[in-house]
């Protein structure tokens, strides 16, 4: 089974790395990273700027690209499923091919401009590695969410709409809802519920993790202090990293379950 998955992954990567959209994504991300370093003048400021790009742009590109990729590959998926292989192998091969391609694209686009400034980054390597880790985890999460949406909706327009809405909810609307909860229940101690709310959204979780590492938690006031004290413990850091992994595994598992049952 692994041999088959490897083959589907290999040809998926071969197809995707030749795709002009992947090349455009790589160039744009590379230019943004270069621009951040060139115009901010300070590595920490550049990395802080890259956090916003990683938090907003990477999930958006991942979910839209993966949704379109699934619908465009549907007929070829059908052809693969007429071969003597399991649906599970086809699904894992498709997801891993796309995940490798988009993750490699992200890693290289961030790393290449950084390599020119090797000496400038001393002391900030841990932040850079965390940024890359978070970017890759968000890429994987949103690819799996896109597959979940696309497998559940036969209509491409509807699937694309739901994917966009999902990104908008997680990246923008969720924060508004959290703010509303804070205002409505301001007389109550909200620190613990806030931590639970952070874990319920991979974008928020990623943002908090990296912002606390950059040490701008002071800007978040008392809540920032509570977060900092919570996230500085080893337990909390491991839990939050595991939560990011869980955010990949759950949609991956549920969309695979759905993929095994649907009609083509």
């Amino acid at each position: 089974m692994f041999k088959l998955i490897n083959k589907i992954t290999f040809y998926g990567i071969k197809d995707l790395l030749r795709s002009r959209w992947i090349i455009v994504y790589f160039i744009v991300l590379c230019m943004i990273t270069e621009g951040m370093f060139r115009f901010s003048g300070h590595s920490l400021k550049a990395l802080s700027g890259m956090v916003s790009v990683t938090i907003f742009l990477v999930p958006l590109i991942s979910i839209i690209f993966a949704t379109i990729y699934y619908y465009n590959s549907r007929n070829f998926i059908e052809l693969m499923l007429t071969q003597p292989i399991s649906r599970k192998s086809v699904y894992i091969g498709l997801v891993s091919g796309l995940s490798f391609s988009l993750s490699l694209c992200f890693i290289f686009a961030i790393s290449i401009p950084v390599l020119w400034r090797f000496s400038m980054l001393s002391g900030y390597w841990n932040i850079l590695f965390l940024l890359i880790f978070i970017g890759v985890m968000l890429t994987l999460t949103f690819i799996c969410l896109a597959f979940w949406v696309s497998i559940s909706n036969e209509d491409k327009g509807r699937g694309l709409g739901i994917s966009l809405l999902l990104w908008l909810t997680m990246a923008v609307v969720y924060d508004g809802l959290v703010l509303m909860v804070v205002i409505l229940f301001q007389d109550y101690p909200l620190e613990k519920p806030m931590i639970v709310l952070m874990f319920s959204n991979p974008i928020d979780l990623a943002r908090v993790l990296i912002l606390l590492k950059i040490d701008v938690s002071a800007l978040l006031g008392y809540t920032g202090a509570v977060f900092k004290s919570f996230f500085s413990s080893n337990f909390a850091q491991i839990t939050s990293l595991l939560s990011l992994v869980a955010w990949v595994l759950f949609p991956f598992y549920f969309s695979m379950k759905k993929f095994k049952k649907i009609d083509f």
Partner: peptide
């Protein structure tokens, strides 16, 4: 061996 109505394959392969 299955021959579908129209052949669809990954465009960049």
């Amino acid at each position: 061996g299955y021959v579908p109505q129209y052949g669809h394959f990954p465009e960049n392969l």
